[in-house]
Nucleic acid binder design. Structure first.
Lengths: 367, 367
DNA sequence: TTGAAAGCGCTAACAA
DNA sequence: TTGTTAGCGCTTTCAA
């Protein structure tokens, strides 16, 4: 791809208009009102600016003002519905404030997290939202040294404010819902209910705590073997299910799964096993994925309230008084076969009329 | 969140080390070798730099060098598995080249696309990948004027090189696979096979063309009513299915769906209808989603080769000779109940040992 | 082997 | 109402 044009600067417009660069600058960044620049010079300059497709160089502006207008979001990854809706919602919120979102992922690796934060800082982001970090305090150190406002989301740190889901409560409700769902047919024994996925982080611990509390309360004893922490890895989860199935020749009656990533590992296992194996299965899963909600067995999900978490995080980051501490946001229990609206629904749809055959015809003709 | 620290500059390090700013700069950006700076001054400065957590200000560097190190990806949206894997893969590829990815979404709105491109240009991105844009040529104009190298992905333009899936071929294979799948039980009549979703863009047209070609070839006549273009809107798709169902009291025997977004609309419809309505259904869907592959009826999907498309796009954007024109990449037919590895599988897993009860125990104890 | 100085494009005092 | 000037932090000649 060859390049051609060259970006215009305020000096180009200065020459073209006969005004000084500072006048041009003032007109183009909105400060002309208080600089009392005449309406007609302003109009002239604006006309020139957009006939030449002028866009201010944000690097230069950022350098001068020491505010880049960039707002960063550090994510573990993009490619699942929880984090992709986080990115989607974040972007909309940042744009609504007139700033520019910049999202980066660091694969839950503490070193990558720190390096990614550093790279965002190198680009002078004005604020950083740290979502699902394995080592939020490590990232905090970096931000602190750079004088960068930041807040944790999803996984808490001890050194900065954190907005997280009420994972304990969510897990309690999820576990209870799964047990009750099973009880419709035949009551569960303790060894019928397993937990797969998760690892030694705050969210997993809280979810496990909720699981155990409710399970013990409703079913009694809870054998340790019923807990299979496979990390946030689809493949490890598949291995765990394969091992279980090879040994037992069947699945547990009910399974709580720590995240949709682990559930994706379960799919991999499913692919190799006859469908009959899933006939009586009931699954509870943390995080919501619309397609997962319609699997061929009941899947009860917990949807974290991404919008509320982000909204809270924006409040906190704007508050100079905000101190380290945890802010809980209630997640939502989603019954099986439920298709919730998502961030995409906010986008305007082109209207559709029922059975508009002519549209099909037209499209078909043009094909 | 209060801020505290202040970023160090080369002047700080200059003062601390007793060397001039230009020496510090050279050491820290790697050009010191050819400036023949002594190993020991270099060592001193490097020590100082990382003991003070120095990170170069990329705005300043970018301004001076007129290369920001930012590489942009313009997306319609994040929140589905096709585009989120695009973002994920893009990010990995850009980082592998030592640059900084910046992703932005513009909701398939031509105006938003242009404005988003302008905003990326304002931040001086060095290259722009335009993915799934409704108006790639509009974005091209903007890039052209700014002298910005760019390439289209997923949806072609006429003014810049475009890397897209072979949508025609994919649709042919998908349609054929669906028809054959149905024929296992009972041969399809023309009115048994519908196409839902898509709109008047290149991808939809090509897919429609493939659909019609194969359908006519295998089943004969193709009534116009069998094509229901509902746009890329989950809700419109739901409405279309509800209208059909209200009228016919049943679903078509087989449905080709233009994208997973439309399939998500189908889920919304599903939620309101007894499961029995889907007993004999066969679905073909463009784009791949692992969870959608395991719905309670056979879903045959087309997976676009995101890695290959991006790799090709990177080659093209680097080639000064590259001209406008279309580069086709073959998509992949995915049989029902298939869980493909995704970009996340590249991330290193912590190893898992079958039934490591002690891990569960340990985690349980710490909870 | 190193330093001085100019300048990337913009903003913000300060003058006029 | 507008222009002049210095400087944000860095790179890059050019000198020394």
């Amino acid at each position: 791809m060859k390049r051609s044009g060259k970006r215009k600067t305020i000096y180009d417009l200065s020459a073209l208009s006969g005004c000084s660069p500072s006048t041009v600058s003032a007109v183009l960044n909105g400060s002309w009102r208080k600089r009392r620049i005449s309406e007609k010079t302003a109009a002239l300059i604006r006309k020139l600016a957009d006939s030449h497709q002028y866009t201010a160089n944000r690097q230069a502006r950022g350098l001068r003002r020491s505010r880049s207008g960039l707002v960063g979001l550090l994510l573990p990854l993009y490619d699942n519905r929880y984090f992709s809706s986080m990115a989607q919602t974040f972007e909309a919120m940042v744009r609504a404030r007139g700033e520019c979102p910049i999202v980066a992922s660091a694969s839950r690796d503490p070193k990558a997290e720190r390096e990614t934060a550093e790279s965002l800082i190198a680009y002078s982001v004005d604020e950083l939202f740290i979502c699902g970090a394995t080592d939020p305090d490590g990232v905090h150190e970096i931000c602190e040294k750079a004088g960068l406002r930041h807040v944790n989301i999803d996984l808490p740190g001890t050194l900065a404010p954190s907005v997280i889901s009420d994972n304990y409560d969510g897990a309690c409700r999820l576990t209870e819902a799964v047990i009750r769902h099973c009880a419709r047919t035949e009551p569960l024994r303790p060894e019928d209910l397993y937990l797969f996925g998760g690892r030694d982080d705050h969210a997993s611990r809280e979810r496990l705590r909720g699981f155990r509390t409710v399970k013990r309360g409703m079913l009694g004893a809870d054998p340790d073997a019923c807990i299979q922490p496979t990390g946030y890895s689809a493949n490890n989860t598949r291995l765990a299910f394969e091992a279980f199935f090879a040994r037992e020749g069947r699945l547990p009656r009910a399974i709580i799964i720590n995240s949709t990533i682990n559930l994706e590992g379960f799919l991999r296992f499913m692919a190799g096993v006859p469908q009959a194996a899933f006939r009586d299965l009931v699954v509870g899963c943390y995080d919501y994925d619309p397609f997962a909600s319609f699997l061929p067995f009941p899947v009860i999900m917990i949807r974290q309230n991404v919008e509320a978490m982000l909204a809270r995080a924006f409040e906190i980051i704007a508050d100079p008084e905000a101190a380290a501490g945890i802010h809980l946001v209630a997640p939502e229990l989603v019954p099986p076969r439920t298709a919730l609206p998502g961030p995409l629904d906010a986008l305007k749809d082109t209207p559709w009329r029922p059975l508009d055959v002519s549209a099909g015809e037209k499209l078909a003709k043009s094909a």
